[in-house]
Design a protein around this nucleic acid. Structure first.
Lengths: 214, 214
DNA sequence: TAGATTGTTAATCGATTAACAATC
DNA sequence: TAGATTGTTAATCGATTAACAATC
């Protein structure tokens, strides 16, 4: 049953379509690829191709049934069966993620944070506890945690990663700006803001250079 | 003077090389592409091609001079001439960005946050002030702010964006999960965590499916 | 000299875009 | 029916990888 492979680029755009569809007010029953494309700044052929890969509800002349499309994207992204996650590192970013309620919309259920700093342990952030690293493995097994989110400084990231592996985690979302070596069986996704920033600032520098030149 | 175009993919990897080079201890004077590749989990040809686009210090048999390479990457990314930035939205994420000191390494100088919530205005976060939206335009012009970072909820993002445009900002780093329409002259970079998360969770779902099947 | 390593050119792969057929 | 819109097939574009020449 060779599942139609959907490209990574498409997968990354699916949440964008879904967010837009959810934000629609006025209750229009159908929406066209053209309308979606212009609202999101994408090409309309791209939208059609993206949607075709997860849905089959498009009707010529009419467009896509909004509710059906939402359901199909959510189904594909697995938002209805949420993943349990924990955060390692209860610093500013870790607490921001822990306290952010929006993740539930994306099928991510962050249960707790863990930190080596005992002065943080025992506190709560938006109703969610900060626990000690000793409790990590037990907690993960007990609560069926699949995703570990690393928000510690780079120097502690390797150690945090090892703790997650030891706790039997299946996937890691790594916000530390450092490469982590994990077994092939573990999924890892780096989220390095410096990478995005580099794109922004080189574009800006180029623009400033052009202006100075003219 | 047609500047050798460096691909976006390469630009996004440059900070990763730089971070690794900076983290090197032991004071080795040279490093090979092979060593860099294995430390970072990249292909070695890719590393060589990436480095070739910004530097010229590679020597067969020896490798790249570490200090020279660091300087060349920093030069290309413009880290020595920092950009001034401000944050709109002093929520958890906004304050995390405002208080994060690591950005100075990446040539980003976040000066202040702005918020419509008057109860937050006047407070400080790690020595940096939270100001009212009325002060935005004046502050940006006075302090020569080029980059605006949007961390407000999606419903307020359009309004925040308009305020930034009115303040004459040149580039926007948008953390709100919504498409913002800006004039072509303004650079915009979306940072949508739901997009990355979608990649992670679909991989995880696939993996869980496979395990269940066997 | 021999060999490790760089750097470049060509081939492959993946994603986007264009052209067009299908359909309500 | 006519036309707007979907969906697919082919062409283009960009990035990665492979092969190989250059060099210290």
């Amino acid at each position: 049953m060779a599942q139609n492979e959907i490209s990574i680029a498409t997968i990354q755009r699916l949440p964008i379509y879904l967010d837009y569809l959810k934000s629609m007010t006025g209750g229009a029953e159908y929406i066209s690829a053209t309308a979606l494309a212009s609202a999101l700044g994408f090409g309309e052929v791209q939208v059609r191709k993206d949607l075709a890969s997860v849905c089959s509800s498009g009707k010529p002349k009419i467009g896509y049934h909004v509710e059906e499309l939402k359901a199909e994207i959510e189904e594909y992204l697995g938002y209805h069966k949420a993943n349990n996650a924990i955060v390692i590192g209860a610093g500013r970013l870790g607490c921001a993620l822990l306290g952010y309620e929006g993740f539930s919309r994306y099928g991510l259920n962050i249960l707790a944070a863990f930190d080596i700093d005992v002065s943080k342990v025992g506190k709560m952030e938006n109703g969610k506890p900060i626990l000690s690293m000793e409790e990590l493995a037990g907690f993960c097994r007990r609560e069926n945690v699949q995703i570990g989110i690393i928000t510690v400084p780079a120097v502690h990231a390797k150690q945090a990663c090892e703790a997650l592996l030891a706790a039997g985690i299946l996937a890691i979302w790594n916000f530390a700006p450092i490469h982590l070596d994990v077994p092939e069986s573990v999924i890892i996704k780096d989220e390095n803001m410096a990478c995005s920033l580099a794109v922004l600032s080189t574009k800006l520098a180029k623009k400033l250079g052009e202006n100075a030149a003219t």
